[in-house]
């Protein structure tokens, strides 16, 4: 057969086979990957709502909220996902707030692909061995209203203020913006439930 026909047939068949194999394999692995995500999410919920022993899932329209409570059904806080763009890709944060949604209890960064060694300091900063998670720890008990702000190269002086990471300002700023946007949006929906 002519060379042209052979070229087209070989490449098209290779592409089709690849697509078929991968989509079938994905079919098989996707549920497992989703299960992992779910387990991680649950673990994170108990991290961002301290002292919670159980949680209830609440769906309001398209938004999902996880209300953490004690075994005695006392509501301690609510957790929700905040997502947005960081410096290099999507950042996904689980935010835990009090039931009035004016103070952050804690945050946990679930997914990020920031620059290793610089932007990744938002989850783990080895250059501060005593407190490698100092960046996210800043958000514990942080006042979220009217908005969270950040400063560079100095300690925070006002409530609702955190210190950005030197050399990773954009990643730090992205986290703050993602949180502010998500809190503003979710406050309206959740408090009107």
């Amino acid at each position: 057969m002519s060379n042209t026909a052979r070229m087209i047939i070989v490449l098209t068949i290779a592409a089709i086979l690849s697509g078929a194999i991968l989509s079938v394999y994905n079919f098989y692995t996707y549920p497992k990957i989703q299960a992992h995500r779910q387990t991680e999410l649950e673990k994170a919920i108990f991290e961002v709502i301290p002292d919670a022993e159980e949680y209830k899932k609440l769906e309001l329209g398209e938004k999902v909220y996880y209300v953490g409570c004690t075994k005695k059904e006392k509501e301690l806080g609510v957790a929700f996902l905040a997502e947005g763009n960081g410096f290099q890709g999507k950042i996904s944060i689980l935010v835990g707030m009090n039931m009035d949604m004016d103070t952050i209890l804690a945050i946990k960064i679930l997914e990020q692909v920031e620059t290793p060694g610089l932007g990744t300091k938002i989850v783990d900063d080895p250059s501060n061995p005593e407190d490698r998670k100092w960046f996210t720890n800043q958000f514990k008990g942080l006042r979220a209203l009217p908005e969270i702000t950040y400063v560079k190269n100095e300690k925070p002086s006002k409530p609702g203020q955190i210190q950005a990471i030197t050399g990773a300002t954009i990643s730090s700023r992205s986290v703050v913006e993602i949180l502010n946007n998500a809190i503003k949006e979710n406050r309206e929906i959740f408090l009107k439930r």
Binding site: G19, A20, S23, V24, N26
Partner: peptide, 22 residues
């Protein structure tokens, strides 16, 4: 249906590129 979409997308891509190369 996602498997069909994958096969069709890849097949079309493969065809278009190989035609272009020829």
């Amino acid at each position: 249906s996602s498997i069909f979409y994958a096969i069709i997308t890849m097949g079309v891509l493969g065809f278009v590129f190989s035609a272009g190369l020829s």
